[in-house]
Write a protein that binds this DNA or RNA. Sequence first.
RNA 1: GGAGAGUUGGCAGAGUGGUAAUGCAGCGGAUUGCUAAUCCGUCAUCGUGAAUAGCGAUGCACAGGUUCGAGUCCUGUACUCUCCGCCA
Length: 427
Amino acid sequence: MLDIKFIIENKDKVKDGLAKKGYTDIDIDALAALHLEINKLKTSSQALAEEKNRLSNSIKSASAEERPAIIAKSKQLGEDLKAEQDKLAAEQEKFNNIMLRMPNLPSPESPVGKDDSENVVRRRVGELPKFDFTPRDHVELMEMNDWSEMERIAKVCGSRTYAIKGDLARLELAIHMLVLDKLAANGFTTITVPSIAKEKPLYGMGYLPFASDEIYYLPSDELYLSGTAELVLNSLRADEILNENELPVLYAGFSPCFRREAGAAGKDTRGLVRVHQFMKTEQFVICKNDIAESEKWHQKLLAISEEVLQDLELPYQVLEVCTGDMGAPKYRQYDLEAWVPTQNCYRETHSCSNITDWQARRTNLRYRDNADGKVKFAHTLNNTGIATPRALVPFMENHQQADGSIRIPEKLQPYMQGKKFIGKNVK
RNA sequence: GGAGAGUUGGCAGAGUGGUAAUGCAGCGGAUUGCUAAUCCGUCAUCGUGAAUAGCGAUGCACAGGUUCGAGUCCUGUACUCUCCGCCA
């Protein structure tokens, strides 16, 4: 959500930002006019309320003869007021619906572009693996090591589900532990959160009304399945006024995540790349309303996830996401993509975003500033810590050996009982 | 699933139909004079203002209702706690 006063005072800047993000259907001038109309209705209904309050308060001291007239007048005012307030509520709803659909404005640093083809590679880190054999893709590797039940589980649970077993299943959890330890070492509080949520947090995060196709809904309970721990973490402190001394709030959230993948029909149907249910360790930050401060945290979150990929010894690239490919809530976004040898390309493993105060305005998450005692909307940021099983795809493929076994990078070995390799052919 | 109790500001906590006490914390100011204390104001949202000035509206979990007037009475919903039932 944006501040309506900011919108009105910076119409050109807002129009420019909306255009860069590809939102051409929002009429800022009409929105400003609507706001003006609402304020007029507020003023007129407040005048009626004031008069009515005055009359009501005078009844106590009025004589018995005066009372019937005052009551009648007050009753009439009450009806007028109700009519005025109904008008106001209708206009307000129109206004709110537009405001809920207003995306965040992009950073002036973000590359301007219309879609993912215009994202900019900022850097590539790590050497691509060279194989003296024909590398197998991750599905073949799972099959030859008896690490999965992909066909059976599809019969039981439907397409885009997965079941992995043995050392690969243990690896999946080991990687999360490595990331959770790293985040804890950086001051993040480990927190496991539910994957079911009410509707309100979905609006707070900006999932609704923007991406309703992506979300599982449980109608008999009026609950939704969460696509990320960010959803819950973003609303965990909703409606609070934090003390500035509590900031920054750093959460390392772990949760099962659910996505319908409705918009990805036919894409990545093979294997572990795109599944309906996965596990994610999420980095989430609440910090002061200060762009230098939140940009600092944005870089910090990015650095942590780069370190994760380095610990996993995966070659990756840092992508700065262009204005047109960014989600509505985002001010600035980096994606990390790890190399997938058999696809001969980098695939997304992390998405790192500065949301500024856009979500905090929606969840009413504020803090009291120590310097001036004022209540301000906080800034929020989020980044993937690690998401599995997708991360297992580049992991298995980059670390595969000729015999189909998988090398375990040094940093991960303590989480795998010291094993240097896993696989059927490991002696 | 059944029964009961509860939900008031950043926090604590009064308030049984007539303008939301009080304390703590924070912020602003004054005063004393010194590892701080005291006093006053302020303390959420919005409208009108150049205004962080005044004036006004709203705000007691949420949504309705009764009433000239609702934190207070009525209805529904959510959540919390206690007990019973079920249960990893």
